[in-house]
Amino acid sequence: MNVTIVDYNSGNISSVINSFKEVAQNKVNIEVTADLNKIKSSDKIVLPGQGSFKSCVDALNNINGLVDTLNEFAINNKKPLLGICVGLQMFADIGYEETETKGLGWISGKVSKIDNKNGKYKLPHIGWNQINIVKESKIFKNIENNSHMYFVHSYEFIPKDKNVISATIDYSTNIVCSAEKGNLFGTQFHPEKSDKIGLKIINNFINL
């Protein structure tokens, strides 16, 4: 099996690479590339994302044919794809970080700044928070409810259809931290930095 981590200049992805290699050992082949043919022939894709919504969308668009290839993979062929952090946020129709930017439109919704309740809550939301699993999800197999995951973000994904939400966290408001729609999976938290329990989620995705 081939799992491809899409390397589209979205910032620092070394932690994502390390964690997937740790989980895969030598049983699964982990590719790190933006090569369209390699992406097309993969079994699963990981879409990381760091920095702003706009910078990540721009970086995707800067690679000729990448968005079309991802659409073909995830929407037409319905093969499993995991978005992490801004990787998940880009599933939305639109994001409001820096400036209004069009997302991939895979899961209808928007990405807005977290309400800090007039400065009562610090942003970025950095650190370990407990996830509240609201829907059975394949990537949460053997993951206990209220497990701690590592977060670092100032924006949140607000999907239109609440049925896609698989987990939330309590911060200033109830924030979506995991979404699932068919073959599309996304986490706002960083499984690659969430210790053993995060590696378990990565393992669940690899073994889908």
Binding site: Q50, P124, H153
Partner: peptide, 13 residues
């Protein structure tokens, strides 16, 4: 350098 680096790599890091 704080402005440049946070724009380039994201405030989170």
């Amino acid at each position: 350098i704080v402005m440049e680096s946070s724009l380039k790599f994201g405030s989170q890091c």
